[in-house]
């Protein structure tokens, strides 16, 4: 393999397979033309030194290849505003939780000045680590979205985003899809999947014992038995959101699909409500972490009532949303446009 072959091959390594051969042949032909011209001008035959001089001018293989590649983003301009919005929400929630945690820690313990300083340092460290982890997960989710959504969609969207003040007087299109809403739903569903499947211990009761946070996981086997179904509904929900992001409009099919998913969700909540408790806690659980027996019994009752209210609430909201969607699909006609000739 001569110098030119090696140069062309290195350029090819940095090019997409689809157009590699085409670009390689074109560059080779250009360089050979240039070498021939240089040789004719200098009156000496082409040799390695001449080739090397020319390749030096032509540029490093990676640089040459990069001129043929489109701009690539980890998170492109279209998704960036949603990315920042989600980051702000998550950062605000985490800051709130961290401040609350520190207040509880401060209020429940008798801290000396030295202990106060070390508690602040520990809280700050936990906060920063949590923020970095959340940031990494959110970047990962958005990077996947960037890969999934075709670039051409962005270009069309950017063209559509030319704002017309006349839109202010128009009625909002009930079938329009809100990009931010869809992306928010995808991100938070993915985070829910991540937490419930990989870090279920996070969903527990947190106590401060001897200056250390103790976590008691509260979810029972009854909950985890239903988890595969819950995962299926969430994953199908993500599929629906990705389809909406591509179509930019609700269709009858996506509306019925959403109704089906909501129905499945209600069925899961109903089974969770009827079956054994999804909480794996008793008064003893809290007595073991130095809580008074009466307080422990009250806390268990409160937590069980909260779960029941939350499930009933989810079922009622689900039924209401299904009824609304079915009514819209079956009885509400699209506004007609009257054409007068």
């Amino acid at each position: 393999m001569n110098l030119l072959d090696r140069y062309i091959s290195e350029i090819g390594e940095n090019l997409p397979r689809k157009s590699r051969a085409d670009i390689e042949t074109e560059i080779r032909s250009t360089i050979e033309d240039m070498l021939e011209e240089t040789s004719a001008a200098s009156g000496s035959p082409v040799d390695d030194e001449m080739t090397m001089d020319l390749l030096r001018d032509y540029g490093a293989p990676e640089k040459v290849a990069s001129t043929y590649l489109p701009d690539k983003y980890l998170i492109g301009p279209k998704l960036y505003p949603s990315f920042i919005l989600v980051l702000k929400i998550v950062a605000a929630v985490m800051t709130g939780v961290a401040l609350l945690g520190f207040s509880v820690r401060f209020g429940m313990s008798e801290m000396g000045l030295q202990s106060f300083g070390s508690q602040i340092a520990q809280s700050a460290l936990e906060y920063v680590v949590g923020l970095i982890t959340a940031f990494g997960n959110i970047v990962l989710v958005f990077a996947i979205l960037e890969l999934v959504i075709p670039t051409s969609k962005y270009k069309n969207d950017l063209r559509e985003e030319v704002w017309d003040p006349a839109q202010l007087t128009k009625e909002a299109d009930p079938d329009a899809v809100s990009t931010r809403g869809v992306i928010g739903t995808i991100v938070f569903t993915l985070l829910a999947l991540l937490v419930v499947n990989i870090y279920p211990q996070v969903l527990g009761v947190w106590f401060l014992m001897d200056g250390q946070w103790v976590n008691i996981p509260i979810l029972s086997q009854a909950f985890f038995r239903m988890l595969p179904w819950l995962n299926a509904v969430w994953l199908l929900g993500i599929v629906l959101q990705v389809v909406l992001l591509r179509q930019r409009k609700w269709t009858k099919l996506t509306r019925w699909f959403e109704i089906g998913l909501k129905f499945l969700g209600i069925a899961i909540f109903f089974l969770l409500l009827r079956g054994p408790s999804i909480l794996n806690i008793s008064a003893d659980t809290f007595i073991n972490v130095s809580m008074a027996a009466s307080s422990a019994a009250t806390l268990v009752k409160i937590l069980n009532v909260i779960v029941i209210i939350a499930l009933i609430n989810a079922i009622i909201v689900g039924v209401y949303e299904i009824s609304k969607s079915v009514y819209r699909l079956l009885f509400k006609k699209s506004p007609r446009i009257l054409i007068i000739k």
Binding site: E26, I27, T30, Y58, G59, K63, T67, Y68
Partner: peptide
């Protein structure tokens, strides 16, 4: 520059 022209042609 050829680095500008060739990608532009494509």
């Amino acid at each position: 520059d050829q680095g500008t022209l060739y990608p532009l042609l494509r």
